[in-house]
Design a protein around this nucleic acid. Structure first.
Lengths: 175, 175
DNA sequence: CAATTTATGTCAACATAGCTGACATATAAC
DNA sequence: GTTATATGTCAGCTATGTTGACATAAATTG
């Protein structure tokens, strides 16, 4: 007789991960709800901020959704003036994506409560950030690890003060 | 000038949590997709297994969704023979929920890849399970912590070999 | 006992964010 | 010049959440 549900190894973490993620997401969700956006918009803002000049194809690969799904939220973000598009300098079919000033402000607002929650959790649990980072990275697939490495590289190249030359911080048509 | 997106504290963990959770969820999602279920069904199976005899009201409180949303997936799970309902012994308006044998087999199948992924991540990262558990618990809201404690208590009371007396492992009308 | 509250179920309509398939356009590449 | 690629768009489907209204059975209360 198989069933009976004796706990599998690390069962407790399965449930804790569920609650932790749910609550981790809830703060930005509240902010997003107030301005008529959702999690999908949050993810786009996050990745465009992480790698300014990201192309649509790269973004699709990160999000693992279809271009039709992306198109909906991306259009709303562009219309709202949070994301600006610019033809790729090498290949003019590509659309490079950048955050406008308001987009940068928004992603920062969304990240703030998440950052605070994590910092508080690190303090209360007495865990080292690097330990948690090692574990979470080990949880991701190989594919995701490649993407994470790519994003970190992009961040380093650009430096914390880079400007996407030409698009400027206001991204031209920002009215 | 505010924007510019200098990294907030613990920014890296925000992104790692996104990837870790996405990949953590993907294994069960694949299995669920094959049998016409989704994440919503997974959650119900999980909690009913965690606290056999759970009432509908308790489940709603754990999931934080409306009864109409729950009704849909719960009905499908009952129809599929994975969940059995039994009137509460004290209050016969209540419906106590139990997993049938097939339900127990299914939740076990869904948990297996998640368990394996976590165990592998603990090994590769060299992190202690208790450390990660402390951190994840600290990430949850007070409300969630109360619920987690309640679930753990239920698990201990029942013991790993309990049977929901009367409902049996086959939950009566299981044909 | 009658009236009310509670636990649950159900119907109908709606929103968000995924999906597929088909087709359009501009540009790059052969 | 033809073909391939990057992107956009139209139309419709699905899963899972939402609200509001109403039904039923059982518990509780006056």
């Amino acid at each position: 007789m198989k069933p009976k549900t004796d706990p599998l190894p690390a069962s407790e973490l399965i449930e804790l991960l569920f609650f932790a993620y749910r609550d981790f997401i809830s703060d930005p969700d509240t902010i997003l709800g107030e301005i008529g956006f959702g999690r999908a918009h949050h993810r786009v803002l996050h990745f465009v901020d992480r790698k300014p000049g990201l192309t649509v194809a790269e973004l699709l690969d990160l999000l693992k959704i279809t271009k039709q799904s992306l198109a909906r939220v991306l259009k709303q973000l562009v219309d709202a003036g949070h994301v600006a598009q610019k033809p790729g300098p090498e290949d003019r079919r590509q659309r490079e994506l950048y955050l406008t000033d308001t987009g940068k402000t928004l992603i920062r607002e969304l990240r703030e409560p998440q950052s605070r929650r994590i910092v508080a959790a690190l303090e209360r649990s007495g865990c080292a950030e690097e330990e948690i980072a090692k574990f979470l990275l080990a949880m991701a697939t190989e594919d995701a690890k490649t993407q994470i490495a790519m994003l970190s590289a992009a961040q380093r190249e650009a430096g914390p003060t880079r400007k996407p030359e030409g698009t400027g911080t206001a991204a031209s048509e920002d009215e």
